[in-house]
Write a protein that binds this DNA or RNA. Structure first.
Lengths: 384, 384
DNA sequence: CGTTTTTGTTCTCGACACGAACATAACAAG
DNA sequence: CTTGTTATGTTCGTGTCGAGAACAAAAACG
């Protein structure tokens, strides 16, 4: 929102509203519907759309008529309009995709990397291979906290507060955030949390990363390192955590907790497959594996209940291992959650939902923050 | 913000911005400063202020000249403009105050009550005794969660989901929220948390109530019952809590925890004085009291550290017993907090601050939410 | 084939903020 | 005491915006 507010800003403001509506909509809508949606006249809508078409931001295509009335046009992304690239940087692979206004994604390239910051150079090269005039912003999802938005710490790659301003120096405009937060954002914007005012999302992998989602925005905290819900002592563990504290929730939930149960050292190498193996065995009837799964689910539910007491989410969505946990042990999770809820809340517990964006969460979320950087008053004023 | 956005809405929008600036400012400012602040011309500022003076919302008084230049006027609340009443409804007393635009408060009346919902009738009568044409909104602070904004539960008064729509039926427009949240809002708007993007506040009394403050707004959750941070199992207690769960943080922090240490049943009668007595004894050198205080402070710090991991506040402010705890045991709290912080956060722990609004927190916060109801586009459009 | 329905288009109108030019009221310097 | 200097208030003309009304256009309906 601009400091000043003149008539010209008014026009831009309405155009941002329109673009945002197109981007957020589940289905394309017509110009007449847009006018109703924004509460403006058909004449005004025509003017707004006209300028946006001129700026190659929106495109009008004939809509198949439905019932009576003069035919109208559907508002769709302009085929030559700006585009966003999204990067999902995972443990030893990465994915690059192009994403249109509205969220349609096209995978461009994937690759493996050597777990050193040189990976950023590789990915930059991949971006360059596909880069065109249309590229406006790159959204980047990585694991690990990014303190103050520019110091990246990925413990399982041994990256200790790597300076992103250097790594991203020759990149196009790039916005970056961590994968758990972006997965939550994706569920909030395009998944099972859509439309919720207060919600939470947790990605369960080796440990738990999460985010609080308020009105479709992922909260970042004062130093951009909010979301380490896994490092609260919610389940009474007495073990020491890799984070440097004792008793973290993550010690009882996720792949590391499953693996530790079978005498394996928690680690980032083969742990994920082993955890999947344990799930399979539990599903097949193995007693010990089933007990490990039970404990994992109960600890998950207990922590969710504790957090629900404090933050009162309408719903909680899970991704990663959490989806499997819901599939195999929904009742256990919900019971443990209820038990941890204050008595007066038990008649209305938060919904616990499997994420619907799935493994595309970080990529989808990265695209969302990239588009967030575009769909602003200032960007549009420059563009027009 | 209105659905539509016409030129007339533009004027109102700028007037809301101006009124909000006047309300939020620490010191009154002049019309010329207002123009600079809002980024508008002096002519436009004159028009805005003129209409607001006409509507009895702002008043201009000559400003003592500072240096050269034509003298200007200070923008102050209009002496006949709208007023807000704030009510602080405590355990067995209440306070009613009138609050001007800008936050200046005048206490109107105080009283005791019989701990039944009839107290609301008493307070309504007090409101009526002072009510005038100027009264616009009443802000009401009470303890206890208010589910969905209209079902009030105060366990220590034995109120079980009392229906506020009935109790407040014959009241003027009234907004209500709980005291801990409003105390946090007060710190955030007019106290030690002013200007922070992410902060937390905890009121420590018999137990712990708190709120997450984002950009000056207290978060309410999906059912308006967020903030029960005291009912997370953060300190490993094995006791059963009155809330119906085992192990709550509140069992180790606050007056109940202090009192229990000396074999007294936690309760809401004489517990507060006894807790103060224990503090005095600890200060005087009593070993046992000092140990109780130590444990309380350490448990407080530990919980704050856990929450800081998850929510990453820039600062945390405390009220109630928390102020005393900071005064007597700041180092213990900070050390326990640090110890619970993930290692990579320990070089930048959240500031732990004593609230500066003090016991006026709930009343001040109630006035803020009342003014929030006024300083809106819709209200101003009606008023002009 | 005329009617109904929905949308697009055109034109007028009132309102707004802006910018420039000018007026005003203090202080400062000589 | 007079004459700049400075900051602010005031006035007026301008460009742009969205609203609203009237009309045109294009489909479906009976």
């Amino acid at each position: 929102m601009p400091q000043t507010m003149t008539s010209a800003d008014l026009r831009i403001r309405n155009q941002v509203r329109l673009l945002r509506a197109v981007h957020d909509a589940a289905e394309p809508f017509t110009r007449a519907e847009a006018a109703r949606l924004l509460g403006i006249g058909r004449n005004t809508a025509a003017a707004l759309v006209g300028e946006l078409e001129q700026a190659r931001l929106l495109h009008e295509v004939p809509a198949e008529s439905s019932g009576r009335g003069r035919p109208t046009t559907l508002l769709v992304p302009h085929p030559e309009g700006p585009q966003v690239f999204a990067v999902d940087f995972r443990e030893d692979t990465w994915t690059l995709a192009a994403v249109e206004l509205g969220g349609a994604a096209t995978e461009l390239e994937t690759g493996e990397h050597d777990r050193t910051p040189a990976a950023f150079t590789e990915i930059r090269a991949a971006v360059a291979r596909h880069e065109s005039e249309r590229l406006a912003v790159v959204g980047f999802a990585t694991s690990g906290p990014i303190r103050d938005g520019h110091r990246l710490h990925i413990s399982h790659l041994g990256w200790d507060e790597v300076e992103l301003d250097t790594l991203l120096a020759d990149w196009p405009t790039t916005v970056i955030d961590n994968d758990a937060r972006l997965a939550g954002l994706a569920e909030s914007r395009r998944g099972v949390l859509r439309g919720m005012g207060t919600a939470m999302h947790f990605h369960i992998d080796f440990d738990i990363g999460g985010t609080l989602l308020l009105a479709g925005d992922a909260q970042r905290g004062g130093h951009n390192i909010a979301g380490e819900f896994g490092h609260m002592p919610l389940t009474g563990s007495t073990l020491e955590c890799m984070c440097g504290v004792r008793g973290c929730w993550s010690l009882d939930v996720g792949a590391n907790a499953l693996v530790r149960r079978f005498g394996k050292e928690p680690g980032y190498g083969t742990g994920r497959e082993l955890a999947q193996e344990i799930l399979r065995r539990a599903e097949a009837g193995d007693k010990e594996a089933a007990a490990a799964l039970d404990d994992n689910a109960a600890a998950l539910g207990k922590g969710l209940g504790a957090l629900a007491n404090a933050l009162d989410p309408e719903a909680i969505s899970l991704s990663g291992l959490g989806v499997e946990l819901i599939r195999l042990r929904r009742n256990l999770i919900e019971d443990a959650c209820r038990e941890q809820l204050m008595a007066f809340r038990r008649d209305d517990p938060p919904q616990i939902l499997a994420g619907t964006v799935g493994s595309a969460g970080p990529l989808t979320g990265a695209a969302e923050i990239a588009w967030d950087a575009i769909l602003t008053h200032d960007w549009l004023r420059e563009r027009l």
